[in-house]
Amino acid sequence: MAIIEVSNLKKSYGNLEVLKQISFDVNKNDVVAVIGPSGSGKSTMLRSLVHLEKVDGGSIRVSGDDLVKDGVYSKPDEIKQITTKMGMVFQHFNLFPHLTVKENLEMAPRLAKRESASDIRKRSSELLQKIGLTGRESAYPAHLSGGQKQRVAIARALMMNPDILLFDEPTSALDPELTGEVLQVMKDLAEEHMTMIVVTHEMGFAKEVASRVIFMDNGEIIESGHPSDVMTNPQFERTKAFLNR
């Protein structure tokens, strides 16, 4: 079943077309890696799924609900309801620096008021254990390493019980020796069949963990398919050129 259906997505900044008729589906339990050169529109595509960017045309459906249909957006309260089904992990973590790790995790679900405080506390301590940060509840983000921050950011997104998790270059701001711990958490999530879209430059991760790879260049999807096809046996010159860099 398709969780996300994207068709003919278009976006321009002035004369520059950053997304040219992008279409793809993401099914439940898919782990989609989006690869491609810088400036190819990967991040813009991902951000438009959660309404951090507005598209100029095309449609986005999330779990059967229209976020935008043929370039026309739904009403603000519907948009909010649709986008909260998705969690987002940013390149620069975007943790709240004035809140402790625990408060970073618990504030959004507490304000959403959908569940009891004790349920929220229970989940936050489970997630902290999962990301290996039990005992750091009362630390402020400034006292965490980059890898720890990104793991907290993943846990914070999971606190909202999203149907799908989006990652925007989650390891690009990290020192090389810290990427492993973040990729491991993502790998664990993939094994638990979390649906994910990961914009990444980590070719190893795409090859090993992704169930599907989308290669984008210049605002278009050039090819997509199983990683063993796209990455080891690419059909298009641009894909070959990118992978051989």
Binding site: L52, K80, M88, F90, H92, N94, M107, A108, A112, M160
Partner: peptide, 30 residues
């Protein structure tokens, strides 16, 4: 205040009021 703070709050479903009072103003005053 980094624009990522607004984006993170928005994606986590904060209302405008909560984004302002819980995320933006405390950082602004500090």
């Amino acid at each position: 205040i980094d624009k990522g703070q607004y984006e993170a709050a928005q994606v986590l479903g904060f209302s405008k009021w909560h984004m302002t009072t819980r995320i933006i103003l405390p950082q602004m005053f500090r």
